[in-house]
Design a protein around this nucleic acid. Structure first.
Lengths: 248, 248
DNA sequence: CGAGGCGTTGACACCCATCAACATGGGTGG
DNA sequence: CCACCCATGTTGATGGGTGTCAACGCCTCG
């Protein structure tokens, strides 16, 4: 039974779990399993399908001529992959599994009939997409106008919040499969500077880096450093854009 | 007759101009006119509607505690505004007219019936959204891993390409209503550094800043500096995701 | 036990921000 | 028509944040 995390993510704002569930049962029949490091798709390759992450972390990144890498975003369980990208002939990014990962592959032969025939999926896609766009916009703000320490604090807040949404984080130890190089490539800084940033955060009593996990000493302080406004992660319930009969 | 620029933007990849036109005729009945500097919506306000830019430049920006600003993206004629944002209760950004602007306001009482009843609009939204997400992802790459000169070259290429798509640019003079401060806030650098960047670009024989316009001395050189791959701006035609009977 | 992936530190250099000051130019009012 | 003003653009000096390079320590795994 797929989509557990997707529904958790949208719960409360997206009252169509039944049609969504039935759509996914019809369409998400093929399971794809990736080992850590496997590519789902590489730059220049043709897109094939839509994917829904069931388990694991996926990174979407661009490799630049000089050899540097920018991680544009990452997908957690319950996130879709390659939805927007289906409009394009070829991928502009690499999508790679950071951990062992399992995905549902949703064949999209006819994009428009999907949108019309599978109401639940179509809506989940649109809502998820809004969520993703919101994360990207916030990343642009971080990269443009926050310094490295604020950026790190911000992305840690984001990860904690996103994992909490799908019940994969609680307490003051944030488990994550990223190494310092990944964090550097998310934040647009160098690996060495990641060390300095964590030294600073630790000295401030906010957070501390350990391999494969972050100790959150003071979440409130971390949020203050980041200027983190968690609202953008959660869909604020808007009854007015939903049909009157189907309120949750 | 609205949507002229929207159709130009999607032309060739989105063979539904007829239903789109009729949808817009039904729904885009109210015209909104803004003077330069007017806000369409401000941070913290409730979203009201979906908008389609008919004419003018719109900026979506975040103002940070220190007083700095980051322009997340900008909308040109034919672009939608506030689509994703409709999922959220309140805006996280300011959306402000940079020039005099006119927009079509599309009331969205029931988001889901819109998606189901107005096929043309729904598809245009999804395609436009993919376009916008692609621009945002590319901006993340720029901010993360390109220096100020490359970023400037890249955004100039982007603007030239986007304006060309809607037949608002040709030749070697790029007219744009942005002042140096706006460019700085798009690129995440300081105003003063914008001057230095243009000095460098001019010295390289690539481009030159004049108030309200950029002289493109050597577009090819500019693209090389930027590492600009224009593909992400254009939908590569994918007949396979379109229903077989309706091929353009 | 060696090798390689990962993390850490210090020295140094460069990109870019900040501040101060000045130049330009278009709009407005006298 | 001129004077002024304010927005915009430009330059130089200085400093801080961050990148690069080199070297080393730790741990895991073969």
């Amino acid at each position: 039974m797929p989509s557990h995390n997707l529904i958790a993510k949208l719960r409360g704002y997206f009252p169509v779990t039944d049609t969504l569930r039935s759509d996914l049962n019809l369409l998400a029949t093929k399971r794809v399993t990736l080992a850590a490091g496997d590519a789902l798709i590489r730059t220049g390759e043709k897109y094939k399908c839509l994917y829904l992450v069931e388990d694991g972390w996926m990174l979407r990144a661009r490799y630049l001529p000089g050899g540097s890498r920018q991680i544009v975003n990452f997908a957690l369980p319950g996130d879709f992959l390659c939805f927007n990208a289906m409009m394009f002939e070829r991928s502009d990014f690499d999508v790679v599994a950071k951990t062992q990962a399992s995905l549902w592959e949703i064949p999209v032969k006819d994009f428009r009939s999907i949108m019309h025939r599978y109401a639940g999926l179509a809506e989940a896609l649109v809502w998820s997409n809004a969520h993703e766009e919101s994360l990207l916009a916030e990343r642009v703000v971080s990269l443009g106008r926050r310094d490295a320490t604020q950026r790190m604090a911000h992305v840690l807040c984001e990860i904690a919040a996103r994992l909490s949404l799908i019940d994969k984080h609680a307490g003051d130890i944030l488990m994550l499969p990223l190494i310092q190089e990944d964090l550097a490539d998310i934040l647009g800084i160098s690996v060495i500077h990641v060390v300095r940033v964590f030294n600073r955060l630790e000295q401030m009593g906010a957070a501390e880096y350990k391999p494969r996990r972050i100790i959150l000493h003071d979440m409130e302080k971390l949020r203050r450093i980041a200027g983190f406004e968690g609202e953008y992660l959660y869909f604020s319930q808007r009854k007015d854009v939903l049909p009157p009969g189907i309120a949750k």
